[in-house]
Write a protein that binds this DNA or RNA. Sequence first.
DNA 1: ACCTGTCAAGTCTGG
DNA 2: CCAGACTTGACAGGT
Length: 340
Amino acid sequence: MIVRFGYVAMSVNVANASPSKTMTATSFCQIGDRDAALRKLGRIAEENLHNTLRLLRHNQAYDIHVFRFSSRLIPLVTHQVTEGWEPFSFLADHFREVGDYVRLHGMRTSLHPDHFTVMTTPRAEVLRISIADLEHQAHMLTAMGLDERAKCNIHIGGTYGDKPAALARFRERFPELKPEVRHRLTLENDDKTYTARETLDFAEEIGVPMVLDIHHHQINPGLDGPPEELWTRIRHTWERNEVDMLSRDPHMQASQPGELLPPKVHSSSPRNEQNRRAHADYVEPEPLFSFLRAIAAETPRLDVMIEAKQKDGALFALMKDLSDLPEVRRIDGATIEIKG
DNA sequence: ACCTGTCAAGTCTGG
DNA sequence: CCAGACTTGACAGGT
């Protein structure tokens, strides 16, 4: 099994390269001239996209092929105060430049809107904002010129004391989403609400890939055992999505399952005993490695997203730890092979 | 240069 | 029914 590792949004090794610079709505409104305020937001967005490109160059230099973009590249764009603002035309070249670099180097990229995007909500206004945000996220990937392999990952959402009713709302809303959103959507198991099995059942039902978060499963396993017990089904959600993508896009080609878009899992470690849900600075090799060993034989390729405070620093530290193991062969700076 | 409280957003819990 | 926790990076306003 070939495993590539990636990290989220910002680097501890590239100085002054935040891709998430922003402005508060309060200070936006304090600027009397609205056009001037929008121009300022636009400049921040340009800077965020420029820093994203710098991060991608860093990634390329260190063989990191998997990366999640900041979901806040354009500050306040989905906020009420910028109603009517359309920044994509003047940012077109910047988005394109980022996407061109990704495609040139065959990187895998994604987006992860934060927890305010909730497709299960009973509140109409929250749903409206959630859908608008999903459309915005998909729009960013499209503006980069990236195909459906660039996914948009979310959690199922809240339960509101009635999981079946909440899932029913998501189920009936899903077909109403724009195809460009639907075809990029992936679902991740949650650390408080929907377990890996519940997320998997639902992902299979609506036909989207499932991102397994090993840390979330540790904290919120429900009645289930180790994550590898669900793996065959999880892997199939990705293979089914590959078939769907191939049927929609004549430019895509794959000779075997997992070649177009390998399954992706998230890996992080608890911050401490008191705060087991928060992310630690670094990632412990276990339990990640026992999971990888368990699925190696049936999985040709896998991508692992490292979620840690030390970002790419944690990725490099983990690569070093894993390289010392006898079953592991290091292929490049951020890729290993595990004998299956 | 550095420190601290605050920030657009939702949901859940406990009082 | 309402206040506070949750969690995160960065702003904003102070020294």
